[in-house]
Design a protein around this nucleic acid. Sequence first.
DNA 1: CAGTGAGCGAGCTTCCGCTTGACTT
Length: 760
Amino acid sequence: MVESPAKAKTIEKFLGKDYTVMSSYGHIRDLSKKELGIAIDDNFKPDYEISPDKKKLVESLAKSAKEAERVWLASDEDREGEAIAWHLTQVLGLPVDQTRRIVFHEITKSAIMAAIENPRTIDMNLVNAQQARRVLDRLVGFELSPVLWKKVKPSLSAGRVQSVAVRLIVEREREIMNFRSTPYYRVTARFYRTDDPAKTLFKAELDRRFDSAEEAEGFLGTCREADFRVLSSESKPAERHPAGPFTTSTLQQEAGRKLGMSVSQTMAVAQRLYENGYITYMRTDSQNLSSQAIAAAREEIIKMFGEEYSSARKYKTKSKGAQEAHEAIRPSYLNRQQIEGSPEEKRLYDLIWKRTVASQMSPARIEKTVVSIAAGESPHKFTATGEVILFDGFLRLYSETVEDETEEGQENTLPELKAGDGLSYQDISATERFTQPPFRYSEASLVRRLEELGIGRPSTYAPTISTIINRGYVIKQNKQGTKRSYRLIRLEKGKISSKELSETTGREKAKLTPTDIGMIVNDYLDKHFEEILDYNFTANVEKEFDEIAEGGKEWTNMIREFYTAFHPTVEKALEELPDRSGRERILGTDPKSGKQVSARIGRYGPIVQIGSADDEEKPRYASMKKDQLIATITLDEALALFELPRTLGELDGKEVVVSIGRYGPYIRYDGKFTSLPRKDDPYSVTLERAVELIHEKESAAKASKEPIKVFDAEPEIKVLNGRYGPYIASGGKNYRIPKDTDPATLTLEQVRDIMAKSKK
DNA sequence: CAGTGAGCGAGCTTCCGCTTGACTT
């Protein structure tokens, strides 16, 4: 019995007819879903239930176990895997003398045969470490969440992993809010050797930055008549090494950067590659490659590039708490460079293939040259750096990208330069730059940070992100960026010129930002449950789980110690009145009515209001936009929100109204709604334009209701247009049309064929 | 799904980590 059905299929091939390989599909039972599932008074005894969707599976496992001569439990060799094996023995009533526990870290015939030769019994210490982990997570999650329901808002949640993930995002946002950008001047020059008839240009940067335009201009003034010469030129050889093979988190990061895929998208595509037998298991924290894979990679490299490009290597996993039950993520067969599948599958496979092979290639050898240049009598020096690749090594196949790189790379080829050489400038520029706030997290960079902290596991990174988004704690959004002007001062042919230029700054794609509720929940938890929110909480309890796994500690004792400290903090929080401070912000006074304008959380989310509940007149309310925060919204932005809904005029005697709803800006007319395209602004859209959009929608709606195709011979069968694209409808059942076929040209035979082939 | 912003009360929400399908017009 193994955990994954795809694994079962592969192993069955290795073992032959004498064995039946079945899969448990992960855990088969868990703490009860409705209750706490832990008898706190009975020494924290867990109350396990077979998961409802596993009942049938357990029955069939039980039947097969009874018929079998011997059961081999081959769940993963980590805490969770050991627990799965133990739960199987308990639920299936497996007798100890007919049950064997085996483990392997790679799915190769030799590894499995070796495992069968070396069976052991279930390691109860490891199982108990898992029980401690499970019980602790349940206690934290099921005691903290109800506190939030009472003190903040119903249906919220808190937990050892998700609450820290939210904290990282909230704290980063506050750093950005408090950041004040300051300008400075960066001086770069283009020089050539005075005695070089070709005037070959190269770039150099001044080793000092100026705070003001005056200082920068003053320096450029001294450069006008200055005598430039090379002080020193040093060349040093260096090596660059390939990155190790993929783990779940590094795959998620690279697929995000190179292919623009979200974390959950990456995992879904990888799952398909795994099920098709193209790659090894995709949820892993190990960088280990089987010796067979290393040999196969070596063979491929020699075949493609030659012996000198091959350099076999083993990688050590650095991440905290790694349990290394699997191999790294790699192609199942390294001689398979391409695969069949969707474009996404092909691209992700290509990435995995290249990364794996590159990890077994020689380092690149480069020569780095640093040239120091004196500018007349000035104490400041220019530095020019150049890099020459002597041997490309792994770079020939793959190079890792870096997220959020600011300054453009310094690709610079240097001419021959030696100390004493006289130089002339082509131009010297002082460009105004601005200090940058810290970067917001992307999904993948959040995963990287969580992994560094040892929080969460490969199987939970993607679901954790979904949870904090679904709870409304954070949102993933793009930011347009704003225009800002900057100054460029340039010295050219002895003359200094200065001009104002403009650039876009702060543009972002798919970054995670906290919501108001995310910030309120974070602050509340941080105030009352500091220990759980501590970035080291998981690392601390992991140390204790390790002690339990080594037999040095009784698991219920560990949990008791934790709970006797933790539970009183829950009781105390429940006694205290909810703290309303920090939840409302006064923004100023409405110039029209003279009433107070404020922002707060309403029943359905963040709102701004004009006036207060104490006034005689009822306050006016408006919902805030998704990208606005109570902490940062300005008076002007708040007042703008009251300009909607806006009545544009009438069409055929009925009102045309424009506003912003849950799904963005819309036009309401005759009880129907039309979305406003991105390029139209609800604050300025005209009646004329709105009417145009309404008519467009009407004709599109008419077209989509029409069947794409009907067949006279078979009126029951129709090709229709639905929400998810064209489909075939027949006798109350719907069938999907294959991607590469044009629905308009389908014949009745083809349709019948599709219907017959579709899965039951 | 296209707004809302009152109040009451019943009934419900929630964790982390291991696995995949099933399902939607």
